[in-house]
Amino acid sequence: MSAPAKVKDGPEYAWPHPHVIGLETLSADDIRHILRTARGFADVSTRSVKKVPALRGKVVVNLFFEPSTRTKSSFYLAASRLSADVLDFSSGSSSLSKGETVVDTAKNIEAMGVDVIVVRHKESGVPKMLAEAVDCAVVNAGDGAHEHPTQGLLDLYTIAQRTGRTDTFDLSGLTVAIVGDIQHSRVARSNIYGLQKLGAKVLLVGPPTLLPGTFESFGCEVHHTFDPVLERVDVVNMLRVQFERITSQAFPSVREYASVYGLTTQRMKRMKKDVVVMHPGPINRGLEIESAVADGPNSAILQQVTNGLAVRMAVLYLVHGAKHAE
């Protein structure tokens, strides 16, 4: 038995947020509290009974206006493991994509007596709008190119786990590169906010068309080639090239993108031996990441998926409590 962990966020800290819309609006203390809570949930999936009764009798709604398999499944399973009932309301139809209607839809669902709405939408700002319109707790599962907070949180958790920092969740001294289509990526934005708040240095790497210079205002180093930063980074987060969001010709060819920005075994040889390789999935094998790297010992990709469950359980648990305390 290890010595009991010192409680750094004792009774004086109480989680205050009934909604999680983005990591931009959370403090470092808030983020660390979620990650510590997630640490307590991590073992639930290894038990004989993979359920805890924390949200027994509560209702969580998945309100997805954009196709999603893994995030939706992860939220579904997270809510189930907290013993909540889960209602799945998904629609890809364009008639539901207008602002007014989204609120109406949410209010209708809320009227059925739900406690937490998990929302994904292709437009930035929809989760915030819903949070202001409804009485129940709202969790952002990704809005446009704005934020994907639970993905950011699970990335932070995975980095802390791989670098042995789950006692403090302090990422000071780490250099993290986010590579690829930064412009269209909500994952990148949530990662930038979260990483900087926990003390890490963030490098952004991508072609100028997908990484405009305006990102320097985030306080990140901006690089348009990958090779010069390889030796420096402790963690590399390879973003998916989102063909569905790229409208103009952002780069000359897939082959050229792969040769300049792809994470290949050749590039791996130049990186730190214990560099952590991450990817939010789904991966385009051979484009942003080579199969041998994605499946290699440095890859934390499946660990990210596992941690996603614990992090989402923590978020659902915390927002529900804060909502109830209001």
Binding site: M1, W15, R36, T37, G40, D43, A314, L318, G321
Partner: peptide, 14 residues
């Protein structure tokens, strides 16, 4: 859980 306001801190079960 529903009566005590903010959720109690979750620690690790070992």
């Amino acid at each position: 859980l529903s009566e005590i306001g903010p959720q109690p801190t979750v620690r690790i079960t070992e």
